[in-house]
Design a protein around this nucleic acid. Structure first.
Length: 472
RNA sequence: GCGCCCAUCGUCUAUCGGUUAGGACGGCACCCUUUCACGGUGCAGAGCGGGGUUCGAUUCCCCGUGGGCGUACCA
C-alpha cells in the first residue's frame, strides 16, 4: 500500500480557530501514525476574504501546537489555471457544460423546487441545450453533470456508509463565469494532484463529500478515504461562539495555556483511547486510529482544559516554565512583571516548584511570583489587611524579635523557632503564620510562608515585616 | 421546506448483546495542613421517549423527540 497522505486545508479568513486546530491535530496524528505526510493547503480562492496575515496566524498556530506539516504550504489560488483546465476537460469528456442562466432565473428555479417540497436546486436547463441558443454577451459558468438517478454513497471512517440520492444533487457550478474555480471543484483537483489518500475534516463537509465524489467519478479518479469528524459545540450545545471558546489558538496562548495541554485537551474531544486522559504527542501518535473517533459532537469545556493545563504546569521543568512566563509577559504587555521576572531569575526559578501546584494557567503563575519582586512597601489586599489587626501586629513584633536573633535562615530553623514561639504564647501556628503571610506577601494566599521567607531572604523579610509593624 | 448526521452521569468519554454501566473534569464530605493549592479517601451522579429483534438490549432495527450540519458564481 502506498504512503498515507493527509492534508489540512484551512481558508485564511481569520486565525486558526479551535475546531480547525483539532482537525489539524487528527490529520497530523494519523499521518505520523502511518508514517505518512500531512500537507498544508491554504484555500485562498476567496480573494475578498483571504489575507496574508491570516495565513501567518494559521502557520503560527500550527507551529505553536507542534503540528508540523510536510513540505511547503500550497496556495489553492495559485492553481487556478489547473482547475480551469480540468473543468474544460470535463466538458470535452461530456461530463460538464456551460450554463448561461442569470441569477434571477436561478432564484426562480430554487423557489419552484422549494414550493414543490424538493431541495432547492438547479433544474438542468442548459444540460442538454444546444450552445447555439446561448444569449449574447453572457459569460457562462461551467456546471458538472451530476447523475440523474441512483445513489451516491460516501464511505466514511467515522459516519459509516452515508447514502445520498442522486436526485437530491444538482448540476453544481465548478467554474465561475470569471473563470475561477469553486471550492467544490478546486478541492477535488487539489486533493487528487497532491496525492491525498485520507481526507480528515469537519462533518460540516459531509454533504459536500457526495458532490465531490461526482467530480472524482467524472474524471475517473480514485476517491480518497474519508473521515468526517464531528464539530465542537459550545457549552450550550449550540455552535461555538467567541464567548465560548471559538477563538484563535493564539488567544489560548495569551490566556496562559500550554500548547501541550491544549493539544491533549483537544485530542480527547471526539477521540479516545480507553480511559487514558493524559498522554504525550508520541503516545497519541502510537495510539491514534480513525476507529477511535467519536460520532457525536463534543462541547467545549474550559474547566477541564484548565485542569489539564494545571497538570502540565505541575509536571513541567522550572526553566521551561520560566521561558514561557517571560514570553507571555512580553506578548500580553505585562511589562512590570517582565522586568521583575527578568531581574530575579534565580529566585523565580527556585520558587517555581512551590508555585507550580498552585497555578492553572501561566498567567496565574506570574501572579503567584509577584511577591518575589514586589516593591516595598507592599500593597496589601483587603483580605490580607483584615488579618493585620492591632493584636496581630503586636504578635508580628515578637516574631520580628525572634527572627532577628535567628542565625540559621532555613525553612527548618524558622519553622522550629516559630513553633516554639507559638507554643510559648499559647497560640496555634496559624495565628502567627497568617499575619506573617499578609505582611510578607500582601495576600492571604501564598506558598508556605517559611519558604517565602527563605526565597526573598532575611533582609527583605525583616524589612517587609517592619513596614507593617512600624506603620500602624 | 428538503437532504444528511448525531444522542451514556452537568461536561469529556469507556462499553464493540450478558458489567454492581468504568474512568476523567466539576460538585460534596473527610484526611493531610501555617493559608491556598497539590496529594489521598469516600459519596452523589447517566443509557432521551416509544415500539420491535433476541433467552437477554446502552449496544441491532423502526418511529418520535431533541440538537447539529448542508442546501451560494463562500469555503
Amino acid at each position: 500500500m502506498s504512503q498515507v497522505v493527509t492534508r489540512f486545508a484551512p481558508s485564511p479568513t481569520g486565525y486558526l480557530h479551535i475546531g480547525g486546530a483539532r482537525t489539524a491535530l487528527f490529520s497530523w496524528a494519523y499521518a505520523r501514525k502511518m508514517g505518512g505526510k500531512m500537507l498544508l493547503r491554504i484555500e485562498d480562492t476567496d480573494r475578498e476574504r483571504s489575507t496574508e496575515a491570516a495565513v501567518e496566524a494559521i502557520k503560527d498556530g500550527l507551529s505553536w501546537l507542534g503540528l508540523h506539516w510536510d513540505g511547503d504550504a500550497i496556495s489553492q489560488f495559485g492553481r487556478a489555471s489547473r482547475h480551469a483546465e480540468i473543468a474544460h476537460e470535463l466538458i470535452a469528456r461530456g461530463h460538464a457544460y456551460k450554463c448561461y442562466c442569470s441569477p434571477a432565473e436561478l432564484d426562480q428555479m430554487r423557489e419552484e423546487a422549494r414550493a414543490a417540497g424538493k431541495p432547492p436546486r438547479y433544474n438542468g436547463y442548459w444540460r442538454d441545450r444546444d450552445q447555439s441558443e446561448a444569449p449574447a454577451g453572457v459569460a457562462p459558468v461551467i456546471r458538472i453533470k451530476s447523475p440523474l438517478s441512483g445513489d451516491i454513497v460516501v464511505h466514511d471512517h467515522v459516519q459509516g456508509e452515508v447514502v445520498f440520492k442522486a436526485e437530491n444533487l444538482d448540476d453544481f457550478i465548478i467554474l465561475r463565469s470569471d473563470g475561477t474555480p469553486t471550492y467544490m471543484h478546486a478541492v477535488v483537483v487539489d486533493d487528487h494532484d497532491m496525492g491525498v489518500t485520507h481526507i480528515i475534516r469537519g462533518d460540516d463537509h459531509l454533504t459536500n463529500a457526495a458532490r465531490q465524489i461526482v467530480v472524482y467519478n467524472a474524471m475517473g479518479w480514485d476517491i480518497p478515504e474519508m473521515a468526517h469528524i464531528p464539530l465542537i459545540h459550545g457549552p450550550d450545545g449550540a455552535k461555538l461562539s467567541k464567548r465560548h471558546g471559538a477563538l484563535g489558538v493564539e488567544a489560548y496562548r495569551q490566556m496562559g495555556y500550554l500548547p501541550e495541554a491544549l493539544r491533549n485537551y483537544l485530542a480527547r474531544l471526539g477521540w479516545s483511547h480507553d480511559d487514558d486522559e493524559i498522554f504525550s504527542s508520541d503516545q497519541m501518535i502510537e495510539w491514534f486510529s480513525l476507529d477511535g473517533l467519536n460520532k457525536g459532537a463534543a462541547r467545549f469545556d474550559f474547566v477541564k482544559l484548565e485542569s489539564i493545563n494545571g497538570h502540565y504546569i505541575r509536571e513541567a521543568k522550572p526553566d521551561y516554565l520560566y521561558g514561557v512566563m517571560i514570553a507571555l509577559a512580553e506578548e500580553v504587555g505585562r511589562l512590570a512583571d517582565l522586568e521583575g521576572l527578568t531581574a530575579n531569575k534565580a529566585t523565580v526559578l527556585a520558587a517555581l516548584p512551590e508555585l507550580q501546584p498552585r497555578a492553572k494557567t501561566i498567567l496565574e503563575l506570574i501572579d503567584l511570583a509577584q511577591f518575589i519582586y514586589a516593591s516595598r512597601p507592599l500593597p496589601i489586599d483587603s483580605a490580607a489587611s483584615a488579618l493585620l489587626t492591632p493584636d496581630a501586629r503586636s504578635v508580628l513584633g515578637d516574631v520580628r524579635d525572634l527572627l532577628i536573633g535567628l542565625n540559621d535562615w532555613s525553612v527548618e530553623a524558622i519553622d522550629a523557632a516559630m513553633r516554639t514561639l507559638a507554643e510559648a504564647k499559647g497560640l496555634k501556628l496559624g495565628k502567627l503564620a497568617q499575619p506573617l503571610r499578609a505582611a510578607l506577601t500582601g495576600r492571604t494566599v501564598s506558598p508556605g510562608i517559611f519558604e517565602v521567607m527563605v526565597l526573598i531572604g532575611r533582609d527583605e523579610s525583616l524589612a517587609r515585616l517592619g513596614d507593617q509593624i512600624d506603620t500602624k
